[in-house]
Design a protein around this nucleic acid. Structure first.
Lengths: 188, 188
DNA sequence: CGCGTTTTGGAACGATCATTCAACTAAGGA
DNA sequence: TCCTTAGTTGAATGATCGTTCCAAAACGCG
């Protein structure tokens, strides 16, 4: 064999995620990427193809990690409603950092099919366990049974986007927390 | 005197608003602007300064129009709660078109002071009449009195952002309408 | 008509962009 | 030591970017 990789691909990708989160696709240059990823220009192209492919990889990785984090938070509590509340609180706590999912939707809408497909995958992966816990909470009487679980998921996800936008716009933590509270209130 | 303006400044600015709504600041080129605004390259720079100044003007105009539309919809009904519902329905109906406010916050966060200042102005202008009608609806018993009117406004605005993101991500009208419904439900 | 002004568009500027080529260095295994 | 692969780096590509200069054309008014 020959010389081994000196950088960790996953680690470099994580760094790329950070840059794209903060500056979006158009607002990010190759120079910004190589600097933060701590790899050479050529290594970037060799390893990730081009800027767009790297962006797709970054969104994919971000979505996967974020979805996993949501799900494990959701299931971290015995009580279903408390699990749901924990997810809301997590979103509030992390809202200071821009969300790559929200950003990419804002930037490209549904113009890029590959991007939309990734969002759809992540949304679906999140929906299943969420619906399960919502049913659970409804049976326990902690959530109203007047609403379809699917509609509740949609509403929660929408609220998350809203909270993230509010945070990006400079809202303070108290306000974000209050927003989460009112959202939960809607589902009682 | 001499040769008069051949284009309407306000009209040209409206066209710029459309382009920026769809493609954001970074994603918009001067060529795209002059084409849609139907003015010469030089006229753009003579009239609006440069691309960034034009963007600020566009955001300003958009915010002013959007805020006015919100307020007049809010006051278009005798009943306060119906006025609030009308605003929600308006947001749902127009959500297919990207919101320049949401987009600019997504793209720049709070990095550009002039931009943040404009958002703050629009938010404040919207808040006053909203709080008034929320109080009204609370007194009429159509809205819960458990929540501070200010918190209710924040929640509604946040929901609007969320709905707009959902729409930009491809959600269908039925889903958007349902989101609005649940949001109103939270305030009862 | 011609003066003053506006609008337009071609040409060009320098900057930056993403991307590639090529030469060079570095490291492990044979 | 040599080969192979990985990595870095400088130079260069061609494109596009925002922006300015300039000259020609268009128009209203005296």
């Amino acid at each position: 064999m020959a010389r081994p990789r000196e950088f960790d691909t996953a680690q470099a990708l994580d760094a790329a995620v950070q840059v794209f989160r903060e500056h979006g696709f158009e607002g990010t240059s190759a120079a910004m990427l190589t600097k933060r990823m701590r790899i050479g220009r050529q290594s970037l192209y060799d390893t990730f193809g081009d800027k767009w492919k790297l962006y797709l990889s970054a969104v994919s990785r971000y979505s996967a990690l974020e979805t996993s984090a949501h799900i494990s938070t959701l299931n971290s509590k015995e009580n279903a409603f408390e699990g749901i509340r924990a997810v809301v609180e997590r979103v509030v706590a992390e809202a200071r950092m821009p969300c790559l999912g929200v950003n990419s939707i804002c930037e490209f809408g549904v113009r890029q099919a590959e991007l939309s497909a990734q969002h759809a995958v992540a949304a679906e992966r999140l929906r299943v366990p969420f619906v399960k816990r919502i049913r659970e909470a409804q049976l326990a009487g902690d959530l109203t049974s007047e609403l379809e679980p699917d509609a509740v998921v949609d509403f929660l996800v929408t609220t998350f986007s809203g909270i993230r936008i509010a945070a990006r716009g400079g809202a303070d933590d108290g306000k974000l927390r209050a927003l989460g509270e009112i959202a939960l209130r809607a589902l009682r």
